[in-house]
């Protein structure tokens, strides 16, 4: 795999999130290194998406600190938080495109929000981004309802990449895609990561993605997280890990 600098781009310490009395994470520590692709897995209800949402600030943690790009997300004022959010991009599960805007307009939204980019340049950059994610040449003028699920995800990724973020958060990027589409999306992420130097934080259930593009895998177990390479997890005796990585489906995907 590509070389990974020892520089935590995301640092989570003692994270605790809860909804009412239900505790999702408790004392969770996590480091994401610059330039790596981290896959986050876990059983249903273990809070994979909750972790993602806590890191990007959509959910307030009950305790613990989250530092992204060296800044404590809980201690930022509005302007600082807005500036930080421009340095990452998020791809939600179904793309979460704004349905009243065309794909091109969707990609331009973050650029408009910056306020300093002239319109002509915005359109040029949007064109580059839409081509970059491999959409067909008539996709820019289409509305989200006219796109297939895979195309919506690509368009969502183009929007997430609009401002050349340092980190992209992907929430189940290959869920709901057919195997061909999923493989193409994996390839796309791998390519973009190499050419744009991205750090990727990816919640996924796709064993192929985990195997093919993730440098390390974070597993949510017992409200905490276990991080390691695939080999580390295979060697771990924890029953859930064994069931997950040595199950019949895993054996096929991982070619074990």
């Amino acid at each position: 795999m590509d070389t990974v600098a020892a520089d935590p781009i995301i640092r989570v310490r003692g994270l605790r999130t809860q909804f009412g009395a239900q505790v999702i994470h408790d004392g969770l520590d996590l480091d994401v290194w610059r330039g790596e692709v981290l896959g986050v897995v876990g059983g249903s209800g273990t809070g994979k998406s909750v972790l993602l949402r806590a890191i990007i600030g959509l959910i307030r943690q009950a305790a613990g600190t989250i530092e992204v790009l060296g800044q404590n997300t809980a201690r930022l004022d509005r302007a600082q938080a807005a500036a930080l959010r421009q340095r990452w991009g998020v791809l939600f599960q179904d793309g979460a495109l704004f349905s009243s805007l065309t794909v091109a307009e969707n990609v331009e939204v973050p650029m408009k929000e910056r306020g300093d980019l002239p319109e002509a340049l915005r359109q040029e950059l949007a064109r580059i981004k839409i081509n970059l994610v491999g959409l067909r040449s008539d996709a820019g003028r289409k509305y989200p309802s006219e796109l297939s699920g895979g195309m919506r995800k690509r368009a969502g990724l183009a929007r997430a990449l609009a401002l050349d973020p340092e980190i992209v958060f992907l929430d189940e990027p290959t869920a709901g895609l057919d195997p061909i589409g999923a493989a193409a999306f994996d390839e796309l992420i791998r390519n973009l990561r190499r050419s744009l130097g991205l750090t990727v934080f990816m919640v996924t259930h796709d064993l192929d993605s985990l195997h093919l593009i993730c440098d390390r895998i974070a597993v949510l177990i017992d409200r905490k997280i276990v991080v390691g390479t695939l080999a580390d997890h295979l060697a771990n005796p924890h029953p859930w890990l064994q069931a997950y990585f040595r199950g019949p489906r895993a054996r096929l995907a991982l070619g074990a």
Partner: peptide
């Protein structure tokens, strides 16, 4: 060298794209 890949990528994707609905 670390910029060459990106530059090539951008050159590759400089393709026409319909941006507005007719």
């Amino acid at each position: 060298p670390e910029h060459a890949g990106l530059l090539q990528r951008v050159v590759d994707v400089d393709k026409p794209m319909e941006m507005v609905a007719p």
